[in-house]
């Protein structure tokens, strides 16, 4: 099962390596990890996507909690939440395909962030299925480079007015 875990940590040097070491030392896999400061500059949030049997994910959550620098761990698996990822794709369309790229970008609410004689670089934000779908469509036209930010996630508030 894939789990997205949101981890509040002290914003100190070495914390990322403690978290990464926890996974590598036990042979657990990190599918993606993204880190950024919160409103309080002393705290960062890491969004970690990992995969494993229930017992392993339980261990991951407990081990994360055990790290001295970890303030709070929230496994979003059973929590209603919003996930987003940003990707940038450098596409190499032929002259005839150029209009198609722009059309697709528009459909997917993407933005052209760079263009050259031979390439368009498109920025797309969304959940995984949206990004996969876009990638499927532009792949035949030739993708020169593809970078993704790693997932970020946030729990939904329970009572929505």
């Amino acid at each position: 099962m894939r789990h997205t875990i949101s981890v509040q940590v002290e914003n100190k040097f070495g914390v990322l390596s403690r978290v990464a070491g926890l996974f590598s030392g036990r042979g657990y896999n990190i599918e993606s990890i993204s880190v950024g400061e919160t409103l309080d500059p002393k705290i960062s949030v890491m969004t970690i996507v990992t995969r494993g049997e229930n017992q392993i994910v339980e261990q991951i959550n407990k081990q994360l909690n055990k790290l001295i620098d970890v303030i709070k761990v929230q496994d979003l698996f059973d929590v209603d939440h919003v996930e987003r990822e940003m990707v940038m794709i450098k596409i190499t369309p032929t002259q005839e395909q150029k209009a198609e790229v722009l059309r697709l970008a528009e459909i997917f609410r993407g933005r052209v962030v760079d263009s050259s004689l031979k390439t368009y670089t498109i920025e797309i934000t969304g959940d995984e299925s949206k990004i996969e779908a876009f990638l499927e469509l532009v792949k035949p036209m030739g993708v020169k480079e593809f970078v993704r930010s790693g997932k970020i996630a946030i729990a939904r508030e329970r009572s929505r007015g």
Binding site: Q55, E58, Q59, K62, Q63, N65, K66
Partner: peptide, 8 residues
Amino acid sequence: IDPTSIRK
């Protein structure tokens, strides 16, 4: 005292 010891 260590939750990670439990069900490991």
